[in-house]
Design a protein around this nucleic acid. Structure first.
Length: 610
RNA sequence: GGGGUCGUAGUUCAGCAUGGUUAGAACGCCGGCCUGUCACGCCGGAGGUCGCGGGUUCGAUCCCCGUCGACCCCGCCA
C-alpha cells in the first residue's frame, strides 16, 4: 500500500467509536483538553497549504477543526479532499485558539478541535445553494431542496422553538386536567365556511371524505361524550387561496372544556400563552390579560386585533362635523357616514407628499381624501382652508387630545369600513415612525364579536365564526329581528398585532342551535342532512361547554420573529398549494382513478405533472 | 377569480427603456500555490436552451401575446 492510498478518503460505516460525544455547537471552553468526537456536515474548508481548517456543522451550530500538515501529513491530505456537505465523524482534542488569532468578532468561538482522525461517512454532490444561515437562494430553490434548507442551524432553531412551544403547551394543559385526544382526518364535511379538501372513497365509489377544517364538531361531541377537558395539536385543512400566514394545512392547539365559561377558557388559554412565551422568549406576561370588546377595538384602534404596543387612538368626531361648514363631511354625515380622525403626535411637519402617501393607504380601502389639520409652531393650518373657523379646528384638536406639533388626519365613510381603513393608517404610521417597541408582547382579549355578518356578494347572513357559537343572553331576542346586531360569546386572543387564538362559548341548547342555523339560512332539513349526527347528539344531554383554538403556526412565527408561517413549518407548500420537493399534487394512474370510480373531465387533465 | 413583482451561468444579480460583434459580475465549482484561517489570500480554468411557446422584425435576452413557476396583495379563508 502506498501512502497515497492511505490518504484516499473513502466512505466508511458508523463504527461505535465514530459516534459523537458532543454536538458541534456545544463544544465549549469548558471542554478544553478533552478528546471529543463530532459528527456533521462539512460547512467550509479553508486550506492554507500547511494548515487546514474545516468548519463542521450540525443542527446546533458550527465548530472549527484544525490540522497541521507537518504534524499530521496524512490527515491533512485527507481533509483537503473534503467538499461542502460531506458527512464526517471527526475526533480530536479541544484546544483554546491561540490568543492572537481570535479576532473574529460576533460570537466567534475561542476554541477549536485539533483533529486526530477523520472518517468520511457520506459524500455529497455540490449543493444547489450554499447552506448558510444567511441563505441567498430564492424560496423556490429552498423549497425544492428543503432538506438542505433545513440544515441551516437557524431552521433547526425554529423547529426547536416550535417543539418547545408544543411541549410546553402539552405540559400546561395536561397539568390542568386536559387530555389529548386524536380526532379523525377522514370525516364528513362540517359547516365552517372554508372549502374542504376531499378524499374519494374506494369502498363507496362516488362518496367522499372531507379533511377537517378544524375538529370543531368532533371536539364538541367529545364534550357530549363526557371527556370534559380535551386538547389536541390538531392538523387542519382548508382548500383556500394562500397567503404569507396561510398554508393549506396548519396546526391548531385545539381546546374544549365542559361546565365552564369565558373565565375558565381565558384562564387556561392565558396559562398556555404565558408558559410558552416565558419558556421560549423568557417574556413575562401579566395576568389577567386586558380585555376589550370588538366595538371598543374597532372604534379606538380600527382593528379587531389592535396592537397595544403603541397608543395612537382613533376618535369618532362625527358629531363635531354634523352641521359644520365643511361641506364634504357634513354631506357624508347626512348620508349616514361617520367621520373618524387620527391624531399623530409630532406630525405637524408632514409634507404634502407624506400626506398624499398616507391618503394612498386608505384610498383603496374606500376612504377618499384625507383631511388634515396641522398644529404647527406658526399656528393652525388645515386642508379645510377657509371653510371652518379657527375656533372650530381648535375645539376639534382639543377633542382629539392633540397638542402643539401634532397633525390630525380625518376621513369619512361607512362606519366599519372607515374604522378599518383608519386602523390600517394607524398601523402604517406607527411602523413608519418606529413607534412599535421591539421585544414587547402585549396580549389582549377581544370579546363580543358580532355573531353574524353580511356576505358582501350574496347579501346573505353568514356566521362570522361558525354557527355553533353562543349568544349574549341580552341579544337573544334580536336573533329573528336584527341578527346583524347579535353579539356572540366569542373571543379572540391577540398578541401585538396578531390573532393568536379564537374561540367561543358554544350553544348547547338544541332549540337555540336550530334558531341560529335558521338565521344563516340552514333549514331543519338541510341541517339534518349535513350534520344531523351533531344535532342528534345535542339532544342526549349536552353539558354547557366552550373552547378555543390557537393558530399554532402563527404563534411560533411570532416567537421566531419571522413573517411567514412557512418559515416555521418543516415542509411547507407554495402559494399555489404545491410541494416543490415532492411534486404534490400530482396525477395518478388511470387504474387508481378507475378503482375510485372517477374519471377526469376532458381538458382538466392537461396540466398534470409527468 | 383579479392586481402587482420576479424568472439570464450551480447561486444571487447586471444587461433589456433606445433590438445588432464573443451575454457580464460576484459568490460557488474544478486545478495549482500558500502554516492561524474563520467572507482566508493569490494564480489559472470550466460553466448559458437568457423559464417555455408563439408573434413582430433582415435580426429578439431585449418589443408584443400567451403559458408555466415563485413571491406579495385584494377577493376568499380564522
Amino acid at each position: 500500500m502506498t501512502t497515497r492510498d492511505e490518504n484516499e478518503l473513502a466512505v466508511e460505516g458508523l463504527r461505535p467509536e465514530l459516534k459523537r460525544t458532543h454536538y458541534c455547537g456545544e463544544v465549549s471552553e469548558g471542554d478544553v483538553g478533552k478528546r471529543v468526537v463530532v459528527n456533521g456536515w462539512v460547512h467550509k474548508v479553508r486550506d492554507l497549504g500547511g494548515l487546514v481548517f474545516v468548519d463542521l456543522r450540525d443542527r446546533s451550530g458550527i465548530v472549527q477543526l484544525a490540522v497541521d500538515a507537518q504534524q499530521m501529513p496524512g490527515l491533512a491530505a485527507r481533509c483537503k479532499q473534503l467538499r461542502s456537505e460531506f458527512v464526517v465523524s471527526a475526533t480530536g482534542k479541544v484546544e483554546l485558539r491561540p490568543q492572537e488569532t481570535r479576532r473574529d468578532e460576533g460570537g466567534a468561538s475561542a476554541i477549536e478541535v485539533r483533529l486526530e482522525s477523520l472518517a468520511l461517512l457520506s459524500k455529497a454532490d455540490v449543493p444547489p445553494f450554499v447552506v448558510q444561515d444567511d441563505v441567498k437562494a430564492k424560496d423556490e430553490l429552498r423549497l425544492r431542496y428543503r432538506y438542505l434548507d433545513l440544515r441551516r442551524p437557524v431552521m433547526a432553531r425554529r423547529l426547536t422553538t416550535r417543539h418547545l412551544a408544543m411541549q410546553e403547551t402539552r405540559r400546561v394543559l395536561s397539568d390542568a386536567g386536559f387530555i389529548e385526544v386524536e380526532t379523525p382526518f377522514l370525516i364528513r364535511s362540517t359547516p365552517e365556511g372554508a372549502r374542504d379538501y376531499l378524499v374519494p372513497s374506494r369502498i363507496k365509489p362516488g362518496n367522499f371524505y372531507a379533511l377537517p377544517q378544524s375538529p370543531q364538531l368532533l371536539k364538541q361531541l367529545l364534550m357530549v361524550g363526557g371527556i370534559d377537558r380535551y386538547f389536541q395539536m390538531a392538523r387542519c385543512f382548508r382548500d383556500e387561496d394562500l397567503r404569507a400566514n396561510r398554508q393549506p394545512e396548519f396546526t391548531q392547539i385545539d381546546i374544549e372544556m365542559s361546565f365552564g365559561d369565558e373565565s375558565d377558557i381565558f384562564d387556561v388559554a392565558e396559562r398556555v400563552t404565558c408558559a410558552v412565551y416565558k419558556r421560549v422568549l423568557g417574556v413575562e406576561m401579566n395576568r389577567p390579560f386586558l380585555t376589550m370588546t370588538f366595538d371598543e377595538a374597532m372604534s379606538q384602534y380600527g382593528s379587531d386585533c389592535p396592537d397595544l404596543r403603541y397608543d395612537l387612538k382613533l376618535s369618532d368626531v362625527t358629531d363635531r362635523f354634523r352641521d359644520s361648514s365643511f361641506a364634504p363631511f357634513a354631506k357624508a354625515i347626512e348620508a349616514g357616514e361617520r367621520v373618524v380622525g387620527l391624531c399623530v403626535p409630532g406630525g405637524s411637519d408632514y409634507s404634502r407628499r407624506v400626506i398624499e402617501s398616507l391618503s394612498a393607504i386608505v384610498r383603496p380601502l374606500g376612504v377618499f381624501g384625507l383631511v388634515w389639520v396641522k398644529l404647527g409652531p406658526d399656528g393652525v393650518k388645515s386642508s379645510m382652508k377657509g371653510e371652518t373657523t379657527g375656533s372650530f379646528t381648535e375645539s376639534l384638536a382639543q377633542r382629539m387630545g392633540a397638542k402643539q406639533g401634532d397633525i390630525l388626519l380625518l376621513g369619512s365613510g361607512q362606519k366599519l369600513k372607515l374604522l378599518a381603513a383608519m386602523g390600517r393608517l394607524r398601523q402604517h404610521i406607527a411602523r413608519e415612525a418606529k413607534l412599535i417597541p421591539e421585544g414587547r408582547y402585549v396580549p389582549l382579549w377581544v370579546t363580543e364579536f358580532p355573531l353574524f355578518e353580511k356576505d358582501e356578494e350574496t347579501g346573505e347572513i353568514v356566521p362570522m365564526h361558525h354557527p355553533f357559537s353562543g349568544i349574549l343572553p341580552e341579544d337573544e331576542p334580536l336573533l329573528e329581528t336584527d341578527p346583524l346586531r347579535v353579539r356572540g360569546r366569542l373571543y379572540d386572543l391577540v398578541v401585538n398585532d396578531q390573532e393568536i387564538a379564537s374561540g367561543s362559548v358554544r350553544i348547547f341548547d338544541p332549540e337555540l342551535q336550530h334558531r341560529v342555523l335558521k338565521t344563516v339560512g340552514i333549514g331543519e332539513e338541510e341541517a339534518r342532512r349535513r350534520f344531523g349526527f351533531f344535532l342528534d347528539a345535542l339532544r342526549f344531554g349536552t353539558p354547557p361547554h366552550c373552547g378555543i383554538a390557537f393558530g399554532f403556526d402563527r404563534m411560533v412565527m411570532q416567537l421566531c420573529g419571522v413573517n411567514s408561517i412557512s418559515e416555521v413549518i418543516a415542509f411547507p407548500k407554495t402559494t399555489a398549494a404545491s410541494c416543490l420537493m415532492t411534486g404534490a399534487p400530482a396525477a395518478v394512474d388511470d387504474s387508481v382513478l378507475e378503482e375510485l370510480g372517477l374519471r377526469l373531465e376532458r381538458g382538466r387533465d392537461k396540466e398534470v405533472d409527468k
